[in-house]
Design a protein around this nucleic acid. Structure first.
Lengths: 220, 220
DNA sequence: AATAATTTTTAGATTAATCTAATTTTATTT
DNA sequence: AAATAAAATTAGATTAATCTAAAAATTATT
């Protein structure tokens, strides 16, 4: 199994994510959109990834990620998330600043480096956005997580992840006082627009929009 | 000043080093040898670096690094050496294992990351091989350093750097008990083959070859 | 100073990754 | 089911980085 280029790793990651961890097939256009590139470039890359047996590709039928492709993608994801933990825990970055830097660091090739980094960080199981970190074999456990929007009235929860990780959204959460680990109770739900009132840590009353409620994930 | 590619950064670094920090002109062949590539590739790259005003290039006359080229090279060197400190101090790597990994990490682009890493490491002034770390402005101080081979008999010193940083050499030093910071006294010099006897830390008597004596640098 | 040797550059190919425009295949809608 | 729309692929270019082989410039040596 030869080394993958940065571009190949990025495409594989996109296929992995868009396919729900390899469950469903993925269309060329959806990859192009995700990666902000053109469909023609995607077709080309899929042909190459297919030659390397990283994906199973039938023309005009979309792709599925292969087993070795899944393993490769999970290792990149593992690296990305470990570096994010490093940036937040050790270098004092805010959780909304780490994604771009981790996008670069995830391509560094050195199994020993990642093993040592993992040791140094104390084998974290989740990244700063609550996403699980695969182990060396690609195994990980998801916390059962539900969008706040789907929690019934008076339901309790703990914020474990966010669905959308773009910077603006994360900054908004910081501003209103929602963070990973915060305890939530849904005190009112407005049918009409999907907004709701919640109590954070038993003391801060917040009104949140449908958009926020759908992108904040809690255990229940 | 546009962003440089990995390849461009590597060439710039080579020019910087081969020119003694920009003092002398550098030939195409010497760059090709240093970078393990062909002279034709070097000519090509020098043309491109020249267009970006990173070097001053006159055909058939070799190159000189420009001021902005020097600044760019020093930033890459700064990153390389800070990452080496991180790998040794925090991730418990041995000094002979860090070069290759730092060759990758030095190309990560994020000024904030490097600032934070520098803070995290406590603003180190020297890397694990004793080489000075330039600051954000490219400024650094060399320790006055002399090869052991040039120390007069009975002369004292402290090991501050090594000239050759290849893995085999560093492992040899580990094996015989020479490390950065070790105190040395030259107890005997053999004219005939350049070998010498030294006392390390006042207690370990060592015979070292000319090759070792020329590549271990001490302050005196 | 002419010739030989060395160094450097250019010319022409190749590979990876990308693009636009054209074509082909599949899906949708009268 | 034929026509239209949408999606995906191919064809042909482009750019960066590399190579080999040939040509040109510089340096060294009779």
């Amino acid at each position: 199994m030869k080394k993958l280029s940065f571009a190949e790793e990025n495409y594989l990651k996109a296929v992995y994510h868009l396919s729900n961890a390899g469950e469903t097939d993925v269309s060329t256009n959806s990859i192009a959109e995700e990666m902000d590139t053109k469909a023609a470039s995607v077709s080309d890359m899929l042909r190459r990834l297919s030659e390397k047996e990283m994906v199973v590709y039938k023309k005009y039928q979309g792709v599925k990620i292969s087993e070795i492709g899944k393993t490769a993608a999970l290792q990149v994801i593992r690296k990305h998330r470990l570096w994010e933990v490093f940036l937040v825990e050790k270098l004092k970055f805010n959780w909304d600043q780490v994604h771009e830097i981790a996008e670069q660091l995830e391509h560094i090739k050195s199994p020993l480096l990642i093993q040592r980094l993992d040791d140094f960080l104390g084998h974290p199981k989740f990244d700063p956005h609550g996403d699980p970190i695969p182990d060396e074999n690609g195994l990980f456990k998801e916390k059962p997580q539900v969008p706040l929007a789907e929690v019934e009235i008076l339901g309790d929860g703990i914020v474990v992840a966010v669905k959308d990780t773009n910077s603006m959204f994360l900054q908004h959460l910081d501003r209103i006082g929602i963070y990973l680990g915060a305890k939530t109770k849904v005190t009112e739900k407005v049918e009409f627009d999907g907004s709701m009132e919640i109590l954070v840590d038993g003391k801060n009353k917040l009104f949140i929009s449908k958009e926020v409620a759908e992108n904040v994930l809690v255990t229940h």
